[in-house]
């Protein structure tokens, strides 16, 4: 055997640096124009770690915390469609607004949100939360249950929060226990506390129970 020949074959043909990424990006952009990409993915650095973002043609469908970085594509392939592709361009608007939010320069997201991963009452709860609980405000699980039309369904509200597919943008961090205890958070309680502080709602604000908590700028009330 001519081992020099085999060794040269093993090295493979030369490829220009950057050519692979460019060819891939170009093919995926074309696939997107042809409507072949059903779930577009992007990763976005943020003060709470790298977020994984996913969009369908209807809008932002998923925001994943850092611990979900490696599993989200697999989950979305099962739950939505296996035509999942990294296509950051489709998420440019989301990424820009998240950057502004984390920099303290944006209070409201102006985004199409696709809540198809939440069903029934959970979806109703998330819709109310997205539309009616603004920056720096907080609500209790009970209040949100009432807002969604089922005042006794605070446990169902709890599970809607725990399974919120679009955290941060649909602000489940603004939902606390009656009395102001933090409750739970998919991204971890440190992150919940951090987001509330960012919004000037403080980490442990005493809750006035009126359902009309106003934004507070005392970041560290005690």
């Amino acid at each position: 055997m001519s081992d020099a020949l085999l060794a040269e074959l093993t090295l493979g043909p030369p490829i220009e640096a950057g050519a692979h990424a460019a060819a891939t990006a170009s093919a995926l952009a074309r696939a997107d124009r042809e409507g072949l990409v059903e779930v577009a993915l992007a990763h976005q650095d943020s003060p709470i770690g790298v977020l994984t973002l996913a969009a369908t043609s209807a809008g932002l469908v998923r925001v994943g915390f850092p611990r979900e970085h490696d599993t989200m594509a697999d989950e979305l392939a099962v739950e939505l469609s296996p035509r999942v592709v990294e296509l950051p361009k489709r998420l440019d608007r989301v990424r820009r607004q998240l950057d502004e939010y984390f920099a303290g320069r944006r209070r409201d997201f102006d985004l199409d949100v696709d809540l198809r991963l939440a069903r029934g009452f959970r979806r109703t709860v998330l819709e109310r939360l997205y539309e009616d609980v603004g920056y720096g405000q907080t609500r209790s699980y009970l209040e949100l249950a009432a807002m969604a039309g089922s005042p006794r369904a605070s446990r169902a509200v709890g599970s809607a929060m725990a399974t919120n597919p679009v955290p941060i943008v649909v602000p489940c961090h603004r939902v606390l226990r009656t009395g102001g205890a933090l409750g739970g958070y998919g991204g971890g309680l440190d992150v919940k506390r951090w987001l509330l502080a960012l919004e000037g709602a403080g980490g442990q604000l005493p809750f006035d129970g009126s359902g009309g908590a106003q934004p507070s700028f005392e970041a560290r009330s005690s």
Partner: peptide, 29 residues
């Protein structure tokens, strides 16, 4: 139910290299 991206991550680079090998840089791309 494998996401297309996973196949691209696992085999895209080798595929591109293979095609450049058998077709040249331009036709391969």
């Amino acid at each position: 139910t494998v996401p297309f991206q996973a196949v691209l991550d696992a085999h895209g680079s080798a595929l591109h290299r293979h095609l450049v090998g058998v077709l040249g840089p331009h036709d391969g791309a």
